[in-house]
């Protein structure tokens, strides 16, 4: 395998709440290959969004901070960068797409201007050239009549077009990595399908790597190459989407797949995972999942399992992973 474009090691994020420190993201490590779509899946509070925001060092509150780890982007650890260098990374090497485009687009600057502005901020090009590139990007993200739409404002776009515009802004400086944080959650399913298509097309044509954060396993199995499942701030399983979704070895992954309402027959009760996801400040000791786990034993409640390799390109953090083959059962 070639050199990864981004290599995250032991990333931790802590929150200071009324004098006590809570770990929200706990020693997260993963690699992102060139041209790969990596899914980051988890429920609310699993730390998936926080992980992505920590990468570009845009944590929403001053109470949050990165407490350790490294993120090697093209050979350099971006956690050692100062704010100025970080600004070049954001929008330069890493583009962000959010769930709610209307709150992340400038309402008083035309869409085209926002793209051109970003190009000129990061690259030394003339105004005219920037405009030309912006129109070209608008065309690429499937906005019809881009010359005219260049001067349109965010509120003049429909929901799906606004998300396309947001993707265009993120693409302005030809980034190596796109971080997409639940980009289709606010959209209708038919429009969601269009945006997912657009993102995979962009990956194919531009070779951009995408970190796709979502709670929807359906989306993951359709567009991602590899998946990292997060629970309670930790990655509990990481691997190719076929291995993780098709034959997940962590009881949480398997439970998550089983409790999809599409799995099963009408009128049949939905399989569920007992209990509630842990809340910040109430993280269980040992394995974060042990209070809800069907395969739990005493060990799980005291020792937190590390992410260990359980197959080719497949890692799982569980003391008692689910066996799928005789070889796995033996380990």
């Amino acid at each position: 395998m070639s050199e990864p474009i981004l290599s995250v090691r032991d990333l931790s994020v802590v929150a200071q709440v009324e004098g006590t420190t809570h770990t929200i993201v706990d020693q997260v490590s993963f690699d992102l290959q060139r041209g790969e779509i990596l899914g980051l899946v988890g429920e609310s509070g699993s730390g998936k969004s926080m992980t992505s925001r920590a990468l570009i060092r845009l944590l929403q509150s001053s109470r949050l901070s990165v407490s350790g780890g490294s993120a090697i982007l093209k050979g350099e650890d971006i956690f050692t960068f100062d704010e100025r260098a970080m600004r070049d990374v954001r929008g330069g090497s890493i583009g962000m797409i959010f769930q709610n485009p209307s709150s992340h687009l400038d309402p008083v600057m035309s869409i085209g201007k926002q793209i051109a502005e970003s190009i000129r901020f990061h690259k030394a090009v003339s105004r005219k050239e920037a405009r030309g590139r912006a129109v070209e990007i608008l065309r690429q993200v499937g906005i019809p009549d881009p010359e005219r739409r260049y001067n349109a404002y965010a509120h003049e776009f429909s929901g799906g077009m606004r998300q396309r515009a947001m993707i265009a802004v993120a693409l302005a400086c030809d980034p190596d990595i796109l971080i997409a944080d639940e980009p289709t959650t606010a959209l209708d399913v038919t429009v969601q399908a269009q945006i997912l298509k657009l993102l995979t097309d962009l990956r194919d044509t531009r070779g951009v790597s995408i970190i796709f954060i979502t709670h929807d396993l359906g989306i993951v199995s359709q567009i991602c190459d590899r998946v990292a499942v997060m629970y309670g701030g930790r990655i509990v399983e990481l691997g190719g989407k076929r291995e993780v979704i098709g034959s997940g070895r962590h009881p949480y992954t398997a439970g998550l797949v089983a409790c999809q309402p599409a799995e099963g027959h009408p009128g049949e009760r939905v399989r569920t995972i007992n209990g509630q996801p842990p809340r910040i400040g109430h993280m269980p000791a040992g394995c974060r999942f042990h209070p809800r786990c069907p395969r739990v034993d005493e060990w799980c409640s005291t020792v937190c399992p590390d992410l260990v390799t359980s197959g080719p390109g497949h890692q799982v953090a569980c003391h008692h992973p689910i066996p799928h083959t005789p070889a796995e059962a033996a380990t």
Binding site: V189, T200, A262
Partner: peptide, 22 residues
Amino acid sequence: LLRAIPDIDPDRGLPENPLAGE
């Protein structure tokens, strides 16, 4: 609408021509 639901089947990719427009 039925075709646009992301199916939880790792072997099925995206539908080729999603419904256009909004």
